[in-house]
Simulated scan of single mutants.
Amino acid sequence: MPPSEIGKRRRVPSILRRSGSGERATGPDGRASRRPGFRHIADAARELGHETIILDGEAVVLDASGRPDFGALQQALGGRAGHRHARESILMAFDLLYLDGQDLTGRPLVERRQLIETILVERQGNIQLSERIEANGDILLQHVCDLGLEGIIAKRLDRPYRSGRTGDWLKVTCSQAGSFAIVGYEPSVAMQGAIGRLLLAARKGEQLVYVGGVGTGFTDKTLRDLKRRLDEIQTSTPVVTLRRKGAVYVEPTLVAEIQFRAWTHEGKLRHASFKRLREPADNAEVAELPESGA
Rank of each mutant, 00 (worst) to 15 (best):
I127K: 12
I127S: 15
I127F: 12
I127L: 15
L129E: 11
L129R: 15
S130T: 13
A135E: 15
G137N: 04
G137A: 10
D138P: 00
D138Q: 09
D138I: 01
L140C: 11
L141R: 10
C145N: 08
C145D: 10
D146V: 01
L147K: 14
G148I: 00
G148D: 01
G148N: 00
G148E: 00
E150Q: 13
E150L: 08
I152P: 02
K155N: 15
L157A: 10
D158E: 15
R159I: 02
R159H: 12
Y161W: 04
Y161Q: 03
R162V: 14
R162S: 15
S163D: 14
S163Q: 14
G164N: 14
R165M: 14
T166K: 07
T166G: 12
W169Y: 13
W169P: 05
L170I: 06
K171A: 14
V172M: 10
C174W: 04
G178E: 01
S179N: 11
F180C: 01
F180L: 02
A181S: 13
I182C: 10
V183A: 13
G184C: 07
G184L: 05
G184T: 03
G184P: 06
Y185E: 11
Y185T: 02
Y185Q: 09
E186K: 06
E186G: 03
S188L: 09
V189S: 12
M191C: 00
M191N: 03
Q192C: 02
A194V: 02
A194K: 04
I195S: 05
G196M: 06
R197M: 12
R197A: 13
L198S: 11
L198C: 07
L198R: 13
L199N: 08
L199R: 07
L199K: 13
L200E: 06
L200N: 06
A201E: 08
A202I: 04
R203N: 11
G205F: 05
E206N: 07
E206V: 00
E206F: 01
L208E: 07
V209A: 12
Y210C: 03
G212R: 07
G213K: 02
V214R: 09
G215H: 09
G215P: 07
T216P: 04
T216H: 07
G217I: 00
F218S: 03
K221G: 04
K221D: 10
K221S: 09
K221N: 07
T222V: 08
L223Y: 02
R224I: 01
D225S: 05
D225T: 05
D225P: 00
L226P: 04
R228E: 13
R228S: 05
R229G: 06
D231W: 00
E232G: 05
E232I: 00
I233V: 13
Q234H: 05
Q234G: 02
T235V: 10
T235P: 01
T235C: 04
S236Y: 01
S236Q: 06
T237K: 09
T237P: 00
P238F: 09
P238H: 08
P238L: 08
